[in-house]
Design a protein around this nucleic acid. Sequence first.
DNA 1: CCATGCAGTTAACAACTGTTCTCTGTAATT
DNA 2: AATTACAGAGAACAGTTGTTAACTGCATGG
Lengths: 208, 208
Amino acid sequence: MSHTFGVRQAQKQRTRQALMDAALALLEEQSLSSLGLREVTRAVGVAPTAFYRHFRSTADLGVALVEEALGSLHLVLGDLMSAVGDSDELIRRAVELIARHVDAYPAHVRFIARERHGGVQPVREAIQGQLARFAEEVGDDLAKRPETAGWSDDDRLMLAGLYVDQMLATASLFLETHDGPEAERERVTRLAGRRMRLISIGCRHWLD
Amino acid sequence: MSHTFGVRQAQKQRTRQALMDAALALLEEQSLSSLGLREVTRAVGVAPTAFYRHFRSTADLGVALVEEALGSLHLVLGDLMSAVGDSDELIRRAVELIARHVDAYPAHVRFIARERHGGVQPVREAIQGQLARFAEEVGDDLAKRPETAGWSDDDRLMLAGLYVDQMLATASLFLETHDGPEAERERVTRLAGRRMRLISIGCRHWLD
DNA sequence: CCATGCAGTTAACAACTGTTCTCTGTAATT
DNA sequence: AATTACAGAGAACAGTTGTTAACTGCATGG
């Protein structure tokens, strides 16, 4: 079988992950389009040519990072949608889960926010594609809820996109206060909550 | 006087503008953190060392570009706020003005969207600062309108930020369809309009 | 147990980068 | 008319980059 993991395959995947982690760390203070292949291998402690055993180019590395970063965010989205309850309670929960995720994977969030409109086309497209899937999922979930009963699918997708955008904007705000004072984080929490509340109010009166 | 423009000063500003224009063009398919000084001077047709007569570094160039790009967008914002009339009419007008601006200055819009979360700190901070000023202005304008009567300044600023973010998101969407089919542009126009309409509805019922 | 596959190495390449120093021509000042 | 200020040119620097080729060692499958 191809997925029987011997010592060989395991070691390969380990250095592959090391390359991705190193890249993510280097991307804290630059963007993907300026990330050099040698820079990454140097950080890992491996020969430059070893890079090619795992990725065709840094753009290819970037696409792999998109899958990793948005994969972890997708789990949060699942958590968000599985919840039920009062609207205000849902919003509070959403903001807190986002804050927790930013705390746990700040580099992932920074990468997505930075490369969503970044200078590397394949990466941009990968992100847009995944986010479109996110919006579809949220739209499908909204269809099961009473708040959007009687809505057209198109309108539901509009709202879903708005929520997804808001999720990323909120995550980005939390990222800026990641090693700032607690008061700032609290301010962002309240701000994000009110933003989503205003949207949910608009949603409640959409069909008037 | 220092601002008496002789032949000398005029020529200097001309090449300075040429450098900025060339940079903006090069940034269509990369981000600022990978933009090389030599790359820019080569595109203009001047010696690499001439760059230093105008900018300390490419980051410095970036900050100048922020002022240019957000300066032009600021004019659009002024147009938007000076208008009065029915809510739907205002939204239609806003979306059209944004579309027009993206058509007129696509490179400016791309630059702001890309570097807002980009890898060059001074540029990021310049953008965030200007956008905060935008939000303040919109907040002040909202205070004069009946829709937000009785709101706290904090809530008004929250709504203003939401509108500013939405303006940029809309501009970014238009940019993606910039040389696409007319049908796509129409779809984005309708989507952006509905997004803003939902927000304005939420605004109308905020104090319930 | 031996042959193969393949992750990773070493060395070398031409091309490119930012930065410094020195020089030149000419507009502006005196 | 003589002097100064300064935008831009030119050459050179040490260091970096992506990519190729031929290699080594070792886990794996027959």
